[in-house]
Every structure is written in C-alpha cells, then in structure tokens.
C-alpha cells in the first residue's frame, strides 16, 4: 500500500470521527459552551468583580484563556476516549483492524477527530467570552501552537484511556479523578505566584499548568514559567504518550485477543 492510500485512510477516519461528534452536536458541542458561559458569568462577572486584578489584568481577562483551555482539554480527551471505546464496545474497531491501516494512522485518525472537536469547542467558547471581555491577542503563534499541542496531547490521553477501558465507567474515572483536578489546579483561576512556595513547586509537576501558562501568554503576554520550558514539557508528554499508545496498539492490548 503506497502512502497516498494511507492518506485516504487517514482522511476517512477523520471524516468518520468529525461526522460522529457533529451528528450528536447537542451532546458534544452545546454543553461545554453553556458550562463555560456560566463560569464567565459567575466567576468572571459576579465574583471576579470583587477580586480585582490578577497579574495586572482584570480577573475576567485572566481566567478567559484558562477556561478556553479547560474546554479544549476536556473535549479533545472525551471525544477520543468515548469514540474509541464505543468502537471497541460495538466491535466496529475491527473495521480498521482488518484493513491495511498502520497503527500510527489509526492514532492520528482518532487524534485528529479529538483535536477538531477540542478546537471547535475552544473557538465557540472564545466567541462567547467576547460578550464578557475585550480579548486581546499578544502572540498569535504561541496561542495557536499551545492550543493545538494541548488538544493533541489530551486526544492521545483519551485514546490511552479507551485502550485500557473495559466498561463505560472506565472512561469517566480518569476525567473525574485525574483530569479535572489537574485542570483546576493548573492555574485556570489563579496565578501560581499566589501559592506558598511548596505548592508552587508541586504545581510544576502538573502538565496542565504549562499548557495554560503558554496559552495565557499568547493572549496576555504574561507567564509563570518560560515558554521554552512550557513547550518542552508539552512536547515530551506528547512523545511519551504517543510512544506508549503505539506500543499498546502494536501488541493489540484491549483490541486483539
């Protein structure tokens, strides 16, 4: 099979994945926009107006990048986790397994679907945020790069979760007990410079912190750690998780008997 055939296969998985979440848009696109609108109203407008400035910006301006990133993380992760697990559950993953599609194409196919959903939700949340704040963009390149890398990383994370999952409960455990705490403690609502030294140190072990940091820099031009370090950490996590998922698919873990 030549490379152009792989590209057709990749495109087919993308089309299938994107049509899937668009078909159920009421479950996949609307809820995050509503949730984030509530965050904007409650934390940004009502409570934020009493908090005052953070790192030299209004509290609303400060949390908007974090909230957009939070929706990107959650949606790219859950898109791949639920889609791949459903494919395992209904056994239609076998359509791909019997076809001459290399494992890396399967990974990038599903990751592509997760990235598109993450970015689409992120864009919609950004549009809603315009009702609450005058968004400025400090560095478009950093902003786009950080959001794409984050969507890729969490899409791969969702795939990893789905590979191991045996029940529908298994694909909600990680988002509830790992993803949500990491996101909330990654500096969405506060600058880590507000934390005591010890907890600032602990925050540096949280990968989400680097993503929000880079993304916020793209919008506001402020960062708690250097951009180079942020992208290095994100890149390392992508390589690590991608390698792990590739190895698991090659061994057939969770998909072949």
């Amino acid at each position: 099979m030549i490379n152009s055939a792989y590209l057709i296969a990749l495109k087919s998985i993308w089309i299938k994945e994107i049509s899937r979440f668009l078909r159920i848009w009421i479950q996949t696109l609307v809820p995050p926009v509503i949730t984030m609108s509530l965050y904007f109203v409650i934390f940004g407008n009502l409570i934020g107006s009493r908090i005052g400035e953070m790192s030299g910006f209004s509290y609303m301006s400060f949390i908007v990048p974090g909230l957009i990133m939070m929706s990107v993380i959650t949606n790219s992760y859950s898109n791949v986790a639920s889609s791949f697990f459903s494919a395992k559950f209904q056994r239609n993953v076998e359509e791909l397994l019997v076809a001459p599609v290399p494992n890396y194409i399967i990974i990038w196919g599903y990751v592509g679907g997760g990235v598109v959903r993450g970015l689409m939700v992120g864009f919609m949340v950004t549009c809603v945020s315009l009702f609450f704040v005058d968004l400025q963009i400090f560095n478009l390149f950093v902003l786009v790069l950080s959001v794409i890398c984050t969507a890729i990383l969490f899409s791969i994370g969702g795939l990893l979760n789905a590979i191991f999952a045996r029940t529908f409960d298994d694909i909600s455990i990680i988002p509830t007990f790992v993803l949500t705490p990491l996101t909330y403690l990654g500096g969405v609502f506060y600058s880590i410079s507000l934390l005591p030294d010890f907890w600032q140190g602990v925050s540096h072990f949280n990968p989400v912190f680097y993503m929000i940091n880079a993304f916020r820099y793209g919008f506001l031009g402020i960062a708690d750690v250097s951009l180079v370090w942020s992208f290095t950490v994100i890149g390392l996590f992508i390589v690590l998780l991608y390698g792990l998922v590739l190895l698991l698919l090659r061994k057939g873990v969770g998909i072949r008997t």
């Binding site: 099979m1 055939a5 998985i13 089309i15 359509e95």
Partner: peptide
C-alpha cells in the same frame, strides 16, 4: 460489528477509504 448509529452508505464508503479507495 458495524457502528449501529451510522448509515449503510457511510459505513461502506469509510470502509473503502481504510483500504485506500478514493471517496
């Protein structure tokens, strides 16, 4: 072992794509 929510035409066209058949 097909996606019960997808339509037959969609299932077939995607499957052909996995084998490198143009859309």
């Amino acid at each position: 072992n097909f996606n019960q929510f997808e339509a037959p035409l969609q299932i077939l066209v995607n499957q052909a794509g996995y084998y490198g058949v143009k859309r």
